[in-house]
């Protein structure tokens, strides 16, 4: 026991220094990694709790994108006639709705995670980054279920997967990063200003119109594609459509803009979160 204590101490993990916050915050991601099992256990908790005392249970993961698909098809195919580049509209919409549903769910959860779990923040220490990370990870199960639905619907329209489907995990990971980026900023601000709570449903709704969920991104003029790509979800959705459907264009060079936005936003968000973190227990 004692040798273990010495050993770890030599590895530089101890002593734990407790001092007033000062200067540039340290990210200290290894400390998050050491407690990564909390991410798993909190994710599990959220999934269990969400579907307890629920009749439809986990099928809700399918119901939401499916119903939205029907509504979108009725409006944007039946009434407005949105061009889809040759793909059947229901599939065209569903390929976007599956990642979009995950994204909206994740940022909503991530934004409120510090408020929902304020009891934990006030009563026990663990790296607070765990909470938003867990919030965006919990939706993976729902995403996988909704994605299976997509794989079932595809053959119905005579669309078979191509090799490009192997890139889906990369596009999904990118949507997770995007959700985490927004979650880091918004959750930390939400601790002090609950306005964020009120703004989120409104914000996601507006963001949906700024994303190619109901329409193809090709309707945006070429000289404005770079500005459109400031919204990383545009690249995610284009990626999903390209990887799953025939004849959809691959994400263009403007996706570099998306990657830059997420990279800068994520690193900035991590530092912002760590900087604010010291005050969470006192302010929340």
């Amino acid at each position: 026991m004692k040798s273990e204590v010495q050993g770890v101490r030599q590895s530089g993990r101890w002593p734990v220094e407790i001092r007033p916050p000062s200067g540039w915050p340290r990210l200290d991601l290894p400390s998050v990694w050491r407690r990564i099992d909390i991410v798993y256990i909190l994710g599990l908790r959220d999934i269990k709790v969400r579907y307890k005392q629920s009749f439809a249970g986990i099928t809700w993961a399918v119901i939401q994108p499916l119903i939205t698909m029907f509504v979108f098809t009725a409006v944007f195919d039946g009434v407005v006639k949105v061009p889809t580049g040759g793909s059947p509209y229901p599939l065209f919409a569903l390929a976007a709705l599956v990642p979009w549903t995950y994204f909206v769910h994740s940022i909503t959860k991530a934004t409120t995670c510090l408020i929902v779990d304020q009891d934990l923040i006030r009563r026990v220490y663990f790296p607070r980054l765990i909470l938003p990370i867990s919030a965006v990870s919990g939706g993976i199960v729902d995403f996988l279920i909704a994605f299976s639905l997509l794989l079932i619907v595809m053959p119905i329209y005579g669309v078979g997967p191509s090799l490009a489907i192997l890139l889906i995990p990369a596009f999904f990971l990118f949507s997770l990063m995007t959700a985490l980026t927004l979650g880091l900023w918004l959750s930390a601000i939400n601790v002090r200003y609950r306005d964020v709570n009120n703004a989120i449903p409104f914000f996601t709704q507006i963001l949906m119109f700024a994303s190619p969920v109901a329409y193809p991104s090709s309707v945006v003029p070429a000289q404005w594609q770079w500005a459109y790509a400031l919204n990383p979800m545009a690249t995610v959705i284009d990626g999903f459509r390209w990887a799953l459907l025939d004849g959809q264009p691959a994400p263009g060079p403007s996706s570099l803009v998306s990657i830059a936005v997420v990279t800068v936003g994520l690193v900035g968000g991590l530092y912002f979160f760590r900087w604010q973190e010291d005050r969470f227990a006192d302010v929340v």
Binding site: R9, W14, I18, P20, P21, I121, V124, A281
Partner: peptide, 26 residues
């Protein structure tokens, strides 16, 4: 237990800390 940070001074802790502070946390 590192739940909140001090305003001045410092503490050093040489080992893993367990807190039995409030029942039913989590």
């Amino acid at each position: 237990s590192q739940i909140t940070r001090p305003s001045e001074g410092r503490a050093r802790i040489y080992g893993r800390v367990g807190s039995m502070l409030e029942a039913g946390t989590g």
